[in-house]
């Protein structure tokens, strides 16, 4: 019952969000602003996490495959493929669900409980579309770039780990990351991220937009936004992998 209620209301909200904008210029300005607020401001956290994860994946692969029959360049390959296939999209999306999702939900929730959304509606603005559409578009445009960025710095993190610890020679690592490279994996990851970007922004917007009450409820909305976005990211990760890679 509760689930159907939410799905129906979410769908209704999305219909309102995707109506034709009236004052295009205001949407354009808003989208650029959101690209900066939601996308560019996340570069730092993506950088840090990717570098460290790349390094750890490399070290763990190295210490768990001390079999002389396995060529050591496979460690570079392992780091590359883990980063490209899973980490740069799914894991980064989960991190962004925490950062961007809570940000969106609390911003919209605050606007709701302080009646700023009502004020917009009174002025004849389609508040759902005006507030949410720019966020969705901004994230769909910027998050895939963060995925590409994460791939590059993640592999670089693996390389740094190799350089500092010498578990294998850097030359082997470099050979490994070029070995049997499948460009389609990058496409696959980017497609996933586009879907995740939509899930994060729309689900978080839903919880923020329909907050009711005071600051306490805004906190609750923001928690729900993060939890539910994360669950849907994991679910769609399985679905998309089956659809795209099978």
């Amino acid at each position: 019952m509760g689930l159907f209620f939410h799905v129906g209301k979410y769908y209704e909200l999305m219909l309102k969000v995707f109506t034709k904008p009236e004052k295009r210029i205001m949407y354009y300005r808003q989208t650029v602003r959101e690209m900066e607020a939601l996308g560019l401001n996340s570069v730092g956290i993506v950088l840090i996490i990717s570098v460290f994860m790349g390094a750890v994946i490399t070290l763990q692969t190295a210490y768990n495959t001390e079999n002389p029959f396995l060529p050591s360049y496979l460690i570079g390959l392992g780091c590359r493929d883990s980063m490209i296939l899973e980490f740069s999209s799914t894991m980064v999306a989960l991190i962004l669900a925490g950062k961007v999702g809570s940000n969106i939900a609390s911003e919209l929730g605050t606007m709701r409980v302080t009646e700023q959304i009502d004020a917009l509606e009174i002025m004849g603005v389609n508040s759902a579309s005006y507030l949410i559409l720019p966020k969705i578009i901004a994230c769909i445009l910027v998050f895939p770039l963060l995925t590409l960025f994460s791939m590059v710095v993640g592999v670089a993190g693996g390389w740094l780990a190799v350089v500092f610890t010498r578990v294998i020679t850097p030359t082997d690592f470099i050979y490994g990351i070029q070995y049997a490279f499948i460009p389609f994996y990058i496409t696959y990851s980017v497609i996933k991220m586009v879907v995740f970007a939509f899930l994060i922004t729309s689900i978080s917007s839903y919880y923020g937009y329909y907050s009711y009450g005071g600051s306490l409820e805004v906190g609750v909305s923001s928690t729900r936004a993060v939890v539910h976005s994360s669950v849907f990211i994991l679910l769609f990760n399985v679905i998309l992998t089956q659809l795209i890679l099978s």
Partner: peptide, 28 residues
Amino acid sequence: EIGMLFQGGALFDSLTVEENIIYPMDMF
């Protein structure tokens, strides 16, 4: 034709006083 004063004011946080007042003129 409607002007509304909300309980807490409901001014847009991200806009200055002047931009807040200009906002409805932009819309209508």
